[in-house]
Amino acid sequence: MPLLSVDELTVTFGGRDRRPSTAVDGVSFTVGQGQVVGLVGESGCGKSVTSLALMGLLPAKGVTVGGRADFDGTDLLTLSPARMRDLRGRELAMIFQDPLSSLNPVVPIGLQVTEILRRHRGLKGEPARKEAAQLLDRVGIPDPGRRLKEYPHQLSGGMRQRALIAMAVACAPRLLIADEPTTALDVTIQAQILELLRELVDQEGTALLMITHDLGVVAGLCDQVNVLYAGKAVETAGRRELFGHPTHPYAHGLLGSIPRLDAPRGEPLHPIRGSINDKIAWADGCAFAPRCDHYTLECLTGTPELTEPRAAGHRVRCVNPVLPAVPPTAEVPA
């Protein structure tokens, strides 16, 4: 029984005066305890909206959310705002991309951390301060006593992200959602933060839903990977299976288009043509078809189903998947 199981999540923006646009179009995935699950995709694929929907952070007006998100027996999508507030920060926590704008600029770090401790753990005064210092220390912020008194702008980018992570893990949440947690950071700082997340998962058994566009980050961190395109999961697999045998033309194309540090120089890149704007509605066919090298008229006859053309547990939404000429011998996914 997974900790979080999302079933056919749909998020549609717009209503009366705007043409409705579906940002998330029936996404399903599960996150088990101590598991790191990645949602990968480019801008506009619906990965961030998914995380906001799970956290109940979408605006109440002009948004329609459908499907189920079962978190340990409760459906996150139908919870009352009050119950959701109670759950958020205690059982579910989120880390955002931009640490500066996610922290209140006029409140010292310490107060922002103790606020959470007070709200969810009933800690006050000196015990709360001590606990806050311990949290900062745990996420690798040196001299936490002094840092508690400082304001967000006095910390560096990496330090702020650490502070945010400290706030997120303050109540030992069972599920941590990280939305592009390292995108705004330099690569050496990114390595520090990823290490910290990895450690949290290993030590606490926290489930981590990692949302990112960076396939390199996914390769190093996630156990299970969901590749999203235009609001739908197009490929789901364990990370070794996915990176070893990307089967959806989109995932395959993405991996072929990234310059790799370890590739011999002079090896040409194979970009995916067009842009995310070149898509068709899922109802009409595969949204990726206009950019796909493999598309046939078959691709344009309704939404392709998720199938397992290669290996069990490796699901692909494509009628013309990228398969080797000779069927591979069955491999146990990682």
Partner: peptide, 15 residues
């Protein structure tokens, strides 16, 4: 340090 910090989309190498 910089090179060791760049993530590579290859799980084996990453591990």
């Amino acid at each position: 340090a910089l090179m060791s910090a760049v993530p590579v989309p290859d799980p084996d190498l990453e591990d």
